[in-house]
Design a protein around this nucleic acid. Structure first.
Length: 289
DNA sequence: GCCGCATCTCTAAGGATCCA
DNA sequence: TGGATCCTTAGAGATGCGGC
């Protein structure tokens, strides 16, 4: 079916934020549509009633809708939006849109998480288990998504962009916000960082990267109570050069880095390793624990 | 310097278990 | 019972290294 994109609106339950689509992030798709002389893969739309401005709404194919609209406004006024019409209720529409978003990688974690959180209440009566079963997702992973979706906007503003908020690293932050005292310091630090980011943008300087932002936010409560930070254990040679450093010691195992250029021979390194393991053992962090 | 292979690291996702 | 958390696994991408 060939449609005028102006008569097609975006379904509000779609994860993708239409206002975040730009010529730049759709450039590849726009170029392929030009190269192929039109849109080859149809979007999925459904009929809408009671809206004088629109006949259909897009369930899956938001980027295609944006790209065709953009092309019509830029030298290709006859380009048509190719779509197939489906009869879907909101929950089925959500599942279809989700399937497509999962296949693509350009929907950000935060967009997806917030979309899930909204759908949880709207389509699944706030029952996470029911939603996980319907979407064929694990409860655990969905639970994480919902948790991350709850990170408030004033925290997100500290990041270079909402797209930089990734599920895995953001999850500990969402957990930290559950603690009232910690949340207060995190919000305060986020406000400071957001101001810095705005100043950097205005000055044309690169923003503070997301990993650094996350670290500062998570550290904020610890810094606030001035907890002394323990330095990683380092074994140094008799010439004062570091031979090895314990990078981590947890129940999965111990990660040790041997430093190049320490001047230590095999025998010295073996001694260093033995000393280090004994040190960890004494502190209850060894392999024998 | 380039290429191919091995290894490491990171992430998405699932499963088991715990807890309210 | 439902949700949260922790741990594991598979796979993709990055990195390192040796041979040419």
């Amino acid at each position: 079916m060939l449609l005028d994109p102006a008569k097609v609106r975006i379904w509000p339950g779609n994860a993708r934020l239409y206002q975040h689509l730009t010529e730049d992030n759709c450039r590849e798709l726009i170029d392929s549509i030009i190269a192929e002389g039109g849109q080859k893969v149809p979007a999925v739309v459904r009929r809408v009633e009671g809206d004088p401005d629109h006949d259909y709404e897009v369930i899956a194919g938001t980027r295609r809708h944006f790209s065709i609209s953009w092309l019509r406004a830029h030298s290709y006024p006859d380009m048509m939006f190719v779509a197939q019409v489906a009869q879907l209720d909101d929950e089925a529409a959500f599942r279809l849109a989700d399937l497509e978003n999962r296949a693509r990688k350009d929907v950000t974690d935060l967009e997806r998480a917030r979309n899930y959180a909204e759908a949880l209440g709207a389509h699944y009566g706030s029952h996470l288990t029911r939603m996980a079963e319907r979407l064929k997702l694990s409860k655990g992973w969905l639970s994480k998504m919902i948790k991350v979706a709850g990170i408030p906007d004033d925290i997100i503003e500290a990041f270079p962009s909402p797209g930089d908020v990734q599920l895995k690293p953001a999850y500990p932050l969402a957990q930290a916000l559950d603690n009232h005292a910690a949340a207060t310091t995190i919000h305060a630090e986020a406000a400071r960082l957001a101001t810095t980011q705005r100043e950097r943008r205005a000055a044309g300087a690169p923003p503070i990267p997301a990993a650094e932002i996350l670290k500062r936010l998570l550290d904020a409560p610890r810094v606030a109570v001035s907890e002394p930070k323990e330095e990683p254990f380092t074994w140094t040679t008799r010439y004062g050069r570091p031979a090895l450093t314990v990078q981590s010691a947890n129940r999965q195992g111990i990660t040790i880095r041997f430093h190049a250029g320490s001047g230590a021979d095999m025998e010295t390194l073996a001694t260093a390793l033995r000393d280090t393991l004994e040190h960890l053992e004494r502190r209850g962090m060894g392999l024998q624990q």
